[in-house]
Write a protein that binds this DNA or RNA. Sequence first.
DNA 1: GGGCCGATGAGCAAGAAAAAGGGCGAGAAG
DNA 2: CTTCTCGCCCTTTTTCTTGCTCATCGGCCC
Lengths: 164, 164
Amino acid sequence: MSKKKGEKKSKSGKKKDLAALSAADLAPAITQAARSVRTALSRSISDSGLYAGQDGVILALSEDDGQTPGQLALRLGVKAPTMTRTIGRMEAQGFVERRADGHDGRLTKVHLTENGLRSVESIGQSVADCGAMAVKGFSEKEVRTLLKLLRAVEHNLQPETGED
Amino acid sequence: MSKKKGEKKSKSGKKKDLAALSAADLAPAITQAARSVRTALSRSISDSGLYAGQDGVILALSEDDGQTPGQLALRLGVKAPTMTRTIGRMEAQGFVERRADGHDGRLTKVHLTENGLRSVESIGQSVADCGAMAVKGFSEKEVRTLLKLLRAVEHNLQPETGED
DNA sequence: GGGCCGATGAGCAAGAAAAAGGGCGAGAAG
DNA sequence: CTTCTCGCCCTTTTTCTTGCTCATCGGCCC
């Protein structure tokens, strides 16, 4: 049983492997960075009594109240069933409420409650605070670059939104 | 940057909010990018019969076999309980096995099985493949920049490692 | 009435926090 | 110097949430 199948698996003369190595490091890097962000954000907003992933719903609703679960899911980049469950929990927590749409029986409109409305400011503050901590020591240009690259990555990974 | 955010909470109009706006957008951007990466990676490695999050264990073990759960957790940036359960599942799946350390009864060494060893290559390939797809259209410099910024973000968010 | 779209339910897994179980080592006491 | 106990470290267990995929139900439009 050979313990290592060759210490450096990409040393075979192709310079393309150089880029491949960086690319291979990217998935773990994004994953870990996201975990750090998620954890930090989770602690920041735990004061408001909600969990990571719920903040986006509050903020999205604060900009456009009465969105449907599908719209929220699309906006926040999660799948519809996930949004349904998150909304259900937030409804139980008293942050949002569901109302049936009068015109279209299929639709469910999600609205912020008084309580949810009150939490908007602190949520936005927490998110901004977390983001500020994440980019501490960054120049403004670096922040913008990171944002741009992140969105490009996200776009590249879309299964069926644009082409292919 | 024509966000409609200024009107709602204009309790104190600071121009500093310009940079803060970018920072506030960073958390969602990282989260979504990470979700995309996770989903894409999940599909890539599902052929090998394992789930997102398990790939790191295989790769880490392929470099240094016989690590403890704590070491793996630290290396992969997850908490110890998460690693314990992941290892347990991977053990049930037949990819790794636990062995007691002879010198220290508290320690558990995790080793790759034959099956796990065989999957190393395809896992590495999947991760590299996914990373390559994520940075499609990027220049090599951009990839490196993204990597650098991502690691800086991760470092900034460490609860108590280095500074605060 | 049939197809389509939107919301929801069930099942599986990752990740975090809190807490429990067990072994090792160091320091105190005899 | 020997022994015993206490504290610390590592692992594991439990509980909560998010997120995905597959499947189902219900209402709208053609």
